[in-house]
Nucleic acid binder design. Structure first.
Lengths: 349, 349
DNA sequence: TTTAGCACTCGTCCTCGGTGAGTGCTAACA
DNA sequence: TGTTAGCACTCACCGAGGACGAGTGCTAAA
């Protein structure tokens, strides 16, 4: 990373901030009238030429002003973005959000995505807490007729998962009741991540004793646990149409790949966008994104944790010309609030 | 409704179909070379002038061809659209869809919306079957600690609903078990629509006898049944970005209101779009839509039924320049398939 | 090192004429 | 009376040309 003079930093920061505001290339004259630093346009032009040579600025065409390059944004985020306080109005909206009574975790995630997108005017994405961190509270098997049945699993946060399973033929009456009772007696309190190993290691022996049809029971439980642990969990995307308001996406052909990605049911990729990589706020600018259709976008994300372990994440997707300072601040706050809320739910009650 | 001569009908149909294909105003010369009717451009121009005077055609500007008006589309749909057979490829896609094994009704609805949007290249909307038509299979109350609990309700189609409820303080141990047992003994088989009346009329007496804390039990059940019956049910929207491919929506400002409507969580209004109004395929052209942001769109919808009663619906949203014949045929087929499938689920098993 | 001056670049906007698709009208024709 | 050929007219679209202005790079002076 090159070393910039204090004045160059000042100018770079001013250009980034001005461009974020106006979405128009910033000229030297505009800057010279700008603020603290009293410099003539010519001086600023010299500095800008240097900054462009170093790769921090781009010039759309010869007679236009300068625009931050992706490298410029990166430098701004890493070294220049000042941690301003949140404006009181934003803070109030967020406080109100988390003061609300929201019983279901699903609702919390849903509302978070909505509020994030409203506040930022970008698209927002929120991933529910990974279910396999949660503990089993209750298991139930409800026969539907024929061989069909629904397996229901309730976690200690009150999250309910259900899967349709196929029962083996000719289950003796009472056998299923015994199975359910055994499971509840033995599995309540187990983290979902260890459901399978518990099944085989600790209660298999007992199942052989208690149940006449051991293999059949295992087959049902396999069906339940298989999709459950690997499932992507809840994903909520909000404010997609906000992207249409951004000037860089006034052209339909530009937004289209982004909207298509956001709409696609291929949530695995969505998860890639906002991976669970440690604490703090992460910023991916343009080409830093692994997904090609986001190369003109910035993804800002943060994770919320329970007991220090990341369990879910939230993110904001917008153009590279993004209000970094504000979005990062908002995400930081929100992730913190979610961490507190989820910790309370997962350990407190 | 004015009476059109056979030739006028022929010309109107040709214009509508040509415009649906090309999205460009149709000129007299193009039409004269068109097909069966051997007429000179001049003759066709005369007829077109008449049709315009009657309101079936519009002219974007003096020296452009003609475009069907909304009245023209309406006439076309009502009198001219020929019931062509579905092309084999479309038919195969639909057959494959419903041949798939889809245990959960939710998956059926989800997949239907996806396939509809893929086939039509418009946006598709699918509404899950109204839950209050279904019958109770199982009720469960899982305490979470403190006063919180989850109430779970399974219907005979295997649909699982859950709500967080607040328990009264100091429930005697065993009381809740008794409550759940009583509910299951008495309520299994009841249609959800009659849950509340059953609660009060038929088993209230028994509850007073069996339970020490009758009022508390009722308060819990109230919480469960309240949101359950009035809930909007499952709504899936798919293929929203398909709209971006339509030439009439190349301008961002034109798509925006439509996408915003489709994204909005205000599903009540979405329900208004595709109301449960009897059998058959419904077409709403432009201003016929009650929602202002759809005034340049056509909504084609159909309902699926169980035992003759409409329980859910599907729809396609696209520009007024829509391939009516094909979309209507596809929706007709799909609604029929859903009717068969849901009937089997709701009554068969 | 900074600044004033100046020529230069280049995107934007406007105008303007040519082009062509399409029309309306009229008169002739079957 | 319905149909067709002919013809003048309209008007969106396209590309060229020119004025404008924001902004630059360079040079020379402070």
């Amino acid at each position: 990373m090159d070393v910039l003079t204090p004045r160059q930093k000042l100018i770079l920061a001013a250009i980034v901030e001005d461009y974020i505001r106006s979405a128009e290339p910033v000229g030297s004259r505009t800057l010279s009238k700008h603020q603290d630093f009293q410099l003539s346009p010519a001086t600023i032009r010299n500095e800008m030429a240097d900054l462009e040579e170093l790769g921090y600025l781009d010039q759309p065409h010869t007679s236009a002003g300068r625009v931050p390059s992706q490298k410029g944004y990166r430098y701004y985020v890493d070294h220049l973005a000042t941690r301003r306080e949140m404006d009181p109005q934003t803070l109030r909206v967020l406080r109100d959000l988390f003061r609300q009574r929201m019983d279901e975790v699903e609702r919390v995630i849903q509302q978070t995505a909505t509020v994030l997108s409203q506040l930022t005017q970008y698209a927002a994405i929120a991933l529910g807490p990974l279910i396999h961190q949660q503990h089993i509270r209750h298991i139930q098997l409800v026969p539907l007729g024929g061989n069909a049945a629904v397996a229901i699993l309730v976690t200690d946060t009150g999250h309910v998962e259900n899967r349709h399973v196929t029962l083996p033929d000719d289950i003796p009456p009472g056998e299923m009741v015994r199975l359910v009772n055994l499971l509840n007696a033995k599995l309540v309190g187990t983290p979902l991540a260890r459901l399978r190993s518990h099944l085989y290691q600790e209660i298999a022996a007992e199942m052989v004793e208690t149940l006449e049809r051991y293999e059949d029971a295992i087959s049902v439980l396999d069906q339940l646990s298989e999709t459950l642990v690997n499932g992507p969990g809840q994903v909520v995307v909000g404010g997609v149409t906000n992207m249409l308001g951004q000037p860089e996406f006034r052209d339909v052909e530009r937004v289209r790949p982004v909207l298509e990605l956001l709409e696609s049911a291929d949530w695995r990729r969505a998860l890639d966008l906002v991976p669970l990589t440690g604490p703090g706020v992460q910023v991916r600018i343009g080409m830093e994104n692994p997904v090609a259709s986001l190369q003109d976008c910035t993804v800002v994300s943060a994770t919320y944790t329970v007991g220090g372990v990341p369990v879910g994440s939230i993110g904001v997707i917008g153009p590279t010309r993004m209000n970094y300072a504000r979005v990062m601040r908002i995400l930081e706050y929100t992730a913190g609030a979610l961490t507190r809320l989820m910790t309370e739910r997962l350990t407190g009650s």
